[in-house]
Write a protein that binds this DNA or RNA. Structure first.
Lengths: 207, 207
DNA sequence: TTTTAGTTTAACAAAATAGTTAAATAAATT
DNA sequence: AATTTATTTAACTATTTTGTTAAACTAAAA
């Protein structure tokens, strides 16, 4: 009650700054001083709002993990047919990653650092990651039997879809060099990529 | 002269330990104490052999970057036809990454941290990353004109190939959960993946 | 105007980490 | 056996970073 009297724009500014610094540098390389500077305040005020670096990081990390996996469960769980789902996943993933290019490298680096935390997070959210694949597999095998698509291992297909959507954002600095382009040029390539990858996958699945 | 008298097994042990710790934790989270423990020695001896953390890291990082890009240039520069090159790239990449699963997340995390260093490294090695794509593009466009493959943007194709080979190793902890498997099971899936991905790509390129 | 919450300043404490050094010890070389 | 080299121990310094605190100040709310 006491806290919400005035506007909470500073708290927002801090969280935004923490997000920026953590997602760009990762937990270990991120400095509280960086976050304070980014938020336009000082270190003392950081600790006034959030007790510790770990506390702040947990907040940010949970948000980012949710965002990283957002949508995927809904799409796979929906009533769409396989082609529609593939289109939706690619569209959804690349759209999110254009808006948050640092998301995958951040989440995956920290998950590699501490795989345990992932599991706890998934359990807490009541999500069973393996259910995703099971649901997807049923539909794929069904379509194979109906000869809508050629025979393929469903988990390999899912890996292919996610790989092509996500990897370019992880390799962004390398790709910018190879493609001889800048941030805006890279974004253009990624927008084109939605259609290119979708076509590529559907073509690869033809009987 | 003085140094090479005795065997240099300690130096090797240190470099191996440094490689393990740096590639698993990244520069910022790696501790000299961790490296010493891993090498079975103490911190003092680390500094006796290698002056500083930065010095050690530079040695390791340069090796790992070379390994990460190894082969790709030779394969693309070779006289193989496109299908053979695709087969060779997938085979080569996945084989390397099965042996060094931490390689991509390490290199890409550090490159994202400091893209400048990449450029310097490439220049020093006399490698022009964009030449890779140019060479590849010529061959792809040629095959499109000859109707050996369907029309496709060469850079998008190259991204697809690299994505599907590399990404699963970056997302390994997540995939282990989704696939409900352990390290050896994951390796089995990755071995199968060589053929799966190659077929997937060739199928996607059919006219 | 008085009070209260938000913020800054600046100094400090505590912990972690990198790096150094001298002395002792172990082990290999001559 | 004598010498050199490798290694450990342990204490220490320097630096970086996180976290705390008290006091002063600012600006909004009552």
């Amino acid at each position: 009650m006491v806290k919400e009297k005035r506007d909470n724009q500073t708290e927002k500014a801090i969280l935004e700054a923490a997000d920026k610094v953590f997602t760009r540098k990762g937990f270990a390389a991120a400095r509280m001083e960086d976050i304070a500077k980014e938020a336009g305040i000082n270190r003392a005020l950081l600790h006034y709002y959030f007790r510790s670096k770990e506390k702040m990081f947990d907040l940010i990390f949970d948000q980012r993990v949710r965002e990283f996996f957002s949508g995927l469960g809904e799409i796979i769980g929906s009533e769409k047919n396989l082609e529609e789902k593939i289109r939706a996943i690619i569209e959804h993933e690349i759209t999110i990653l254009i808006a948050h290019p640092y998301l995958p490298i951040f989440v995956l680096q920290e998950v590699n650092q501490n795989p345990q935390r992932m599991l706890e997070h998934a359990q807490k959210a009541g999500a069973h990651p393996s259910m995703l694949l099971k649901k997807f597999s049923v539909q794929v095998k069904d379509d194979i039997k109906k000869q809508i698509i050629r025979p393929i291992d469903p988990s390999q297909l899912l890996m292919n879809i996610m790989s092509m959507a996500i990897y370019p954002f992880i390799a962004k600095p390398i790709l910018k060099t190879i493609l001889e382009t800048d941030d805006t040029g890279f974004e253009v390539v990624m927008k084109r990529r939605k259609k290119e990858v979708t076509e590529f996958i559907l073509q690869a699945l033809k009987v």
